[in-house]
Design a binder for these strands. Sequence first.
DNA 1: AAGTGGTCTAGACCACTCT
DNA 2: GAGTGGTCTAGACCACTTG
Lengths: 240, 240
Amino acid sequence: MALDAESSIPLHIQLSELLKGEILQGTIKEKIPPERVLMELYSVSRSTVRRAIAALISEGILESRRGSGTYIYNRPLEEWLGNLVTYNKTIDDLGMKPGAKLLSQGVVASTQELKDITQMDELYLINRLRLADNIPIAIETQYYPVNIGKQLSKFNLDEIVLYEVLESSLGIKLWEADQVISSTMPTKEEAQLLDILECESVLVIERSTCDYDGNLVEYLRGIFRSDMYAFRIKLGRNKL
Amino acid sequence: MALDAESSIPLHIQLSELLKGEILQGTIKEKIPPERVLMELYSVSRSTVRRAIAALISEGILESRRGSGTYIYNRPLEEWLGNLVTYNKTIDDLGMKPGAKLLSQGVVASTQELKDITQMDELYLINRLRLADNIPIAIETQYYPVNIGKQLSKFNLDEIVLYEVLESSLGIKLWEADQVISSTMPTKEEAQLLDILECESVLVIERSTCDYDGNLVEYLRGIFRSDMYAFRIKLGRNKL
DNA sequence: AAGTGGTCTAGACCACTCT
DNA sequence: GAGTGGTCTAGACCACTTG
């Protein structure tokens, strides 16, 4: 529990990693001890404590409230998933209501392609049609590790937002995502489900999402009607 | 030139903004003064100087080298444009060579759509076909403010990378970009140029890029063959 | 050897929140 | 009023780069 002053690793880094570990393991729950307590606890100066905390704040793990304390930050998912999931070009503008229809679910054996991506032999599949005012928008196929999928299946899959369930009920924190956007022609079945012609193009998004430890939590493949959806990305020079 | 100790704005913020201004205006060139000099210059402690500098480092404006000094950071464009421009799914793998063919260029009057996006009545258009080993990959239509476009036109437009010219020769630093990816069917002309069938879908990317002051530098519209290109985005929770 | 950034301490005052 | 985070100072030692 103590820091090593002889180590070549700076004290503020050691403390920062130590705190991060306790937060991610759940040893520290809602609020971290006050700076002056941490100072005595680990026998370092307040500047060093503050530097360790500052690092975790910029990592999005902590949030400090002046006069009150420093809290574990549960950033609303939308703040980053909003960038990541999908930008809905028209639905918001038109004030349409989102919905979903479950097509199929259950444990499936991995195809070779799925095995390459997920490194798992079995996956839990959830296949849904996403709607806006009952107009089909996208076909979303999600694959989860079997144990996670079975827990998810107990919830109402006609709701769209599985991410809230993952986080609040199952305690799984999504952390990083890698997504690829491409375009293709729909199959006959896909065209039928989306209520479009086979000659109309669709957008394809493939996304792998991991938790903090790098474990794959979800692999998603979505087929989007190109007349209803576009993806938007904002980037700045300072963001890596 | 002095900081206001009575201000409600923290000293490290004041100093940080002051330095940023001098860097972006070019008053400070390659290297900023040592911390101990800034300390005396603005009558603040070294911690305050370091905090101001730290902020600029995390903004990607400065870079410090131990034992040597703190330098203005010219991050290689690819480090962030790589995320932003396009991810080439197959070309790298196949070891193909990129090229470009100029289709047309010159000053054009804005259509209503262009006027909405750029707020300009006239634009300089550069229209090019992008190739990989002489296979057509994409049609890229770029619009620049007329004065910038005329300068760009003096360079060899069969080269692909205009961004390096913008930065090193014209001194324009790209800073932020907003891009939208969608999908559609090509027109007859587009299909012909790309050497695909009219019934094959294409990816459409529309991107506005601004400089540090928020002035639009480029508006780009690209039509990509969907069998040759996909866009890749990596996102993490900590990045805004 | 001199100069630079990197780390760390001890102590101070302020503005804010909570009760 | 007690406790919290936010700001700032003055001074120290270290590791590294450069002439």
